[in-house]
């Protein structure tokens, strides 16, 4: 079982390297990608295309196999429901994304080099845990 966190660490590092290489860790490039009505920077379409293609290959392999290589549990079937909660959350997320040009993974990835990004991370943690707390309250 000690190998499991090591593989997660490796995947996190590869993910972070990809974010830095693609330019997603530079808020100006993300804002440029969202600037359809000004000077649109299309490069993140290639990033998303590359990420989705390789991730889809992994999905396809694991589905064909029926289960993961190192985990005996059956594959989870994520929800496919489109409800008001998803739409509201996506709108609020998009507003924050456009406001600073950061989303969670790039903000965490740059936080060692640019500690000012920790302000974003702190807000993110507060929002994420606030929603989780309300959910627990609602169920209890």
């Amino acid at each position: 079982m000690t190998g499991r966190p090591a593989i997660f660490l490796l995947c996190g590092a590869v993910f972070g390297a990809g974010l830095a290489l693609s330019g997603m860790t530079d808020p100006a490039k993300v804002i440029g990608f969202l600037d359809f009505f000004g000077h649109w920077d299309p490069r993140l379409t290639a990033t998303m295309g590359g990420a989705v293609t390789v991730a889809a290959l992994g999905q396809w392999l694991v589905r064909r196999r029926g289960r993961a290589l190192l985990c005996a549990d059956p594959l989870a079937a994520p929800s496919s429901r489109i409800d008001a909660r998803l739409l509201a959350g996506s709108v609020i997320f998009g507003a924050g994304w456009g406001l600073a040009g950061l989303c969670p993974a790039p903000a965490l990835a740059v936080s060692l080099q640019y500690p000012v990004a920790l302000l974003f991370v702190a807000g993110f943690l507060a929002g994420l845990m606030g929603v989780a707390r309300l959910d627990r309250g609602g169920r209890g």
Binding site: G89, I92, P104, A107, F120, L125, G127
Partner: peptide
């Protein structure tokens, strides 16, 4: 922005 992104996510 972080707060909005956290609530949204």
């Amino acid at each position: 922005a972080g707060l909005l992104v956290g609530i949204g996510a």
